[in-house]
Computed example of a mutant assay.
Amino acid sequence: MPNASSSSASSPRASSQGSSDRAWLHLLLFVLTLGSTIYAGMLWVNRAPYYETAGQWHLWLDGLRYAVPLLAFLTVHEFGHYFAARHHGINTSLPYYIPFPFNGIGNFGAVIRIREPIPSMRTLFDIGASGPVAGFVVALGILLYAFATLPPPEYLLDQPGHDALKTHIEQYGTFPDEPPSLADAEDETSVIVVGQTPLFWMLSQLFDNVPPMYEIYHYPVLFAGWLGLFFTALNLLPVGQLDGGHVLYALFGARWHRRLARLFVWILLLSGSIGFMEGIRPALLDYTAWGTWLAWGILAGILHLYNRSIFRQAPTLQLLSLGGLLLGTGLAELEWAGLHTIGYSGWLLWTLLILWLIRVEHPPVRQHEPLSSGRRWLGYLCIAIFISSFSVQPLSVV
């Protein structure tokens, strides 16, 4: 499964300017990441009946169809940061790829190490914006290629299981309008649904044979393109020292960065709280009649700790934030205004990483020269890319 904490964002780290790259280490990490990502792609695509007749080498080919475009996106993203930093004379490492075959996507992205403080606002902006923009271009190209080369729905007949879906395709030659587990009350199979984004939806309207969101992970290039959008959006979250935080800080300054970053972290916490209650409360009800109250108590304790970190010197804001999060989660439990459709518990983990590693606020920059007109328009483009690529519920299970 895609992990919400999986990101290729880079963050500045002070170090000596005399550090040098060990090319062999970066190459080794890349090869290991390629191997682990191929393995993850094999698991996702999983056309078992097809492999039995066409040969096992097609299994590796499907893995490559997933791994190559995904690593191409990660590589271009990180080298966007790298070349922008080198252009400004900033001492920067080559990308460190992070292989991990057990998180569902085969890696934890890639990072570069910036070995000295970034001195000026323009340099900060250039380094922060270059990676997401470059990576987005690649992700968009991957998606366009994937949509243009989609096989017919009969492609999924090679999947093991999926009996209700296969029956519908064999009868009508199309995908059903909703997951078969919802269309057939007797089918209790869980269905993994990948989150829709504005850009993905818009592109899907232009092509034929587009699979539903609960099946796209069986299409290796299409899934890699969706992950490209997802990773771009994660990097452009407008908080701390993520790429989006750099862009927001350079565009609007420290005060508005602090306000908007806190607001967005609050939104992530609300989504995470709703997802948490949807996941834990049914399990606790199996053990005790007090399960609902226990679940609310656990959630309130977790949110209290988060709010203390976000609003350190403002107890009133801590209380208001906690009350708003609990109220919003309660309304979602009542299915008010569709709030229950935005729950994703993974944001609680991602928010923890923000508070622990990335921070909500942005450190000061020494030189505050204004951005050029071209840079400001590029910043607005980054905001548009974020809005078009972000899904508040990137994964759900029906």
Rank of each mutant, 00 (worst) to 15 (best):
R366C: 00
I385N: 04
T123Q: 13
P153G: 10
F252C: 05
R312P: 00
W256T: 02
S120N: 13
L285A: 14
I118N: 00
A295K: 08
V247T: 02
T288A: 15
L263A: 15
P212C: 08
E52I: 05
G18A: 10
I118L: 15
R281L: 12
L263E: 02
P179W: 01
A384G: 14
G279N: 14
V210G: 03
G109L: 11
T288N: 11
G272W: 05
T37V: 07
F147N: 01
L227Q: 03
G291N: 09
L325K: 07
A283D: 08
G173L: 09
G41D: 04
P394Q: 07
L353A: 13
L157D: 07
V365N: 05
G228E: 02
H88K: 14
L269R: 08
F223G: 02
F73C: 12
I310M: 12
Q159A: 15
Y96D: 00
I142T: 08
N91M: 08
R47S: 06
G343W: 03
L371P: 01
T174G: 00
Y145V: 11
L378M: 14
P69M: 08
A67V: 04
G374I: 05
S6F: 11
A183Y: 00
V193P: 04
L326E: 07
W57P: 00
F386W: 13
Q313I: 04
S396D: 09
L236D: 00
Q393A: 08
V31S: 06
L331Y: 07
G63H: 09
P363N: 11
F311L: 05
N46M: 12
N107F: 02
I354G: 06
T149L: 00
P69K: 07
V133W: 03
W296N: 06
S11F: 13
Q367P: 00
F230V: 01
Q205R: 15
L229N: 01
I274F: 06
T341C: 00
Y306V: 09
W350G: 03
Y306I: 05
L263V: 12
L334H: 12
W256Q: 09
G135D: 06
Y344R: 05
P49C: 13
P363W: 07
G104K: 03
V111M: 07
H168R: 00
S93C: 07
L268E: 02
I98Y: 05
F147K: 02
G328I: 03
D286S: 12
T174V: 10
Q205K: 14
L143T: 01
P176C: 06
L157Q: 06
G275V: 06
G228T: 04
L285E: 14
V398Q: 11
L263I: 13
V133H: 05
H77T: 09
L71Y: 04
R359F: 12
R376I: 11
A233C: 07
V265I: 14
W296R: 10
G195M: 09
H218K: 15
G245E: 03
R359Q: 14
T53N: 03
L165W: 04
T174N: 09
Y96I: 11
S389C: 15
M1K: 03
I267C: 15
F102A: 13
S389A: 15
W336K: 07
C382P: 01
S19L: 15
P49G: 13
L234M: 14
P282W: 11
E170W: 01
D208L: 12
G279C: 00
A185I: 09
A254R: 14
F73R: 03
T37K: 08
F125D: 02
F231S: 05
L305N: 12
H81V: 01
G253C: 10
N103E: 02
Q56G: 14
S372L: 12
N235M: 11
